[in-house]
Amino acid sequence: MARVLPLDLLDLDDSLTDEERQIRAVVRQVVDDRVRPHVAGWYERGQAPVRELALEFGRLGLLGMHLSGYGCAGASAVAYGLACLELEAGDSGVRSLVSVQGSLAMYAIWRYGSEEQKQRWLPSMAAGEAIGCFGLTEPDHGSDPASMTTRARRDGTDWVLSGTKMWITNAPVADVAVVWARTEAGIQGFVVPMGSPGVAAREIRQKLSLRASATGELVLDEVRLPAEAALPEGTGLRAPLSCLTEARFGIVWGALGAARECLHVALDYAVGREQFGRPIAGFQLTQAKLADMAVELQKGYLLALHLGRLADAGRLRPEQVSVGKLNNVREALAIARQCRTILGANGVSGEYPVLRHANNLESVLTYEGTAEIHQLVIGQRLTGLSAFA
C-alpha cells in the first residue's frame, strides 16, 4: 500500500486557498535552502546568523507579514500561520525571530505607536534592516507582568527608565526595544533605541533549548528618552497582553511545524530501520505510536486553521488563542518525545532533528504564557471566576 504523509490522511490541503498554498511553498523552500542545511550547527554552537536571516525573511515579506502598510505584506492570518508552521519545521528559534519581530515589536508599534514612530521603524523592520525585541518579562516577574518593577519617571519633558528585562528574544542583536514600564499612571510602553545611553543587552548563554535563537537580558540604567518615545496608545496592561495574543497565534501554528518534522523523520526512520528481520514500521506497537501522533497532528492543524479563519473574520478572542497554544504546544512536545523513542539511541544524535525540536518545545511550552496560565485563562472563561489571585 502506498504511503501518505500525516497531514494528507484527511486531505487537509483542500481547506486552503491557492494563495495560501503558494505562500506555504515559498516559505518551505527558503527553510529547505537557508535553514535545514545549517541549523544543527547553529544549535550546537548556540549561535545563528540572525541578521542575515532577518534580511532574507524581509525580502520575502515574512516580517510583520500579517500587518498592513509601512512595507508590510498585509497577508491573511492563515497565511501567516502557515509561514510560522514551515519556519518552525526548520527550528523554533527561527520562527521565534519572525514572531518577536512581527507579532511583538512591530505589532506594538503598529497598533499603539504614533505615526512618527511607525514611519521611523516599521519599514526598516519589515525589510529586516532593523531588528526589534519586546521587553516585558523580568527576572522575578514572568507569568505576573502586572508586578513588574521596571520604572519610568518624568524628568521635565523626558522619561527616565530603569529596570531589567529577562529572556528577551533578539535582544543581543536588536536595534530597537519595545519596553513596558510602570509609571505613576500605570503601565506604559516605550520605543527604546538600543544605542541609547544606559541600555545594555547581555546574551544568555548555556541554554539547552532555543540555541539557534539570540536571547538576552535587557538592562536599563537611568535611560533618558524624549517624551515622544512613549507609545501614545500603549497604556495599561491590556496593551502588552494583546501583543502576546498576537505572538501566541503564531505559536499555535509553529508548534505543529516542529511536530510534523519529527513525525516525518520518525516515519522515514521506521520504514528504513530493520530489527528482527523486518522494518520496525511493520510492528504493531510502532504503528500505534505513529497513528496516534498523526491523529493529534491533524487535530492540532484543524484547530489552528479554525482559529486562523476566525482571526481573518475579525472574531478571534484571546481565550480561543489560549486553547490553541495550550493544546498544540502540549501535543507537539508529546509527539517529539514519542518520535525520539522510535529512533532509539539515534534519537539523541544531532544527526536527526527530533531531540532538538523536543528541547526547543520545552521553551515554547513556557514562553508567551505557560500551560498553567492558559489553563487558568480557559478556566476563567468557563466559570466566570478568576483563579489568578
Rank of each mutant, 00 (worst) to 15 (best):
V178N: 07
V26C: 00
A332K: 00
G93F: 02
N359Y: 07
R151V: 10
A239M: 08
E274T: 08
A177G: 11
Y43A: 05
R278V: 14
A2W: 08
T164H: 08
R340H: 10
T341D: 12
L244D: 06
L256Q: 03
R59C: 02
E261V: 04
Q101S: 04
I187V: 13
G64F: 14
R205A: 08
L302C: 03
G163P: 01
R317S: 01
C72V: 08
L225Q: 06
D312N: 03
P197M: 06
P6V: 11
Y352G: 01
L67Q: 11
D268L: 08
G344N: 07
G350V: 12
G300L: 01
S124P: 03
R151Y: 08
D32R: 14
Q188W: 12
R24C: 00
H141D: 07
A332M: 01
V178A: 10
G250Y: 07
V31M: 03
A201E: 09
A304M: 05
E319N: 04
M65I: 12
G236V: 13
W121Q: 03
V50T: 06
V27L: 03
G379H: 10
G300R: 03
D144Y: 14
D91S: 12
T215K: 00
I373S: 04
F283H: 13
E368K: 15
G314W: 11
L208M: 15
L326D: 03
L305T: 14
E138L: 02
L302P: 01
G102L: 15
A313T: 00
G379I: 11
H141V: 14
S242W: 01
D13V: 02
R111F: 00
L297S: 11
P197L: 11
V26W: 05
S322A: 14
A77H: 15
P226L: 00
L225C: 13
V348F: 09
L376E: 06
A77L: 09
V30H: 13
D175R: 06
L12W: 02
H374W: 10
A334K: 10
R151F: 04
R340M: 13
E184T: 09
G163Q: 02
D221V: 13
L267Q: 00
G113E: 00
A371Y: 06
R3N: 02
L316Y: 04
R317P: 09
E44F: 05
I204S: 05
D144S: 10
C262L: 06
L355G: 10
Y70L: 04
G71P: 02
G216D: 05
Y43E: 15
K289F: 09
Y367A: 04
L9I: 12
N360H: 05
Q29G: 07
Q338L: 13
T150Y: 05
S92K: 12
P6Q: 09
N359S: 11
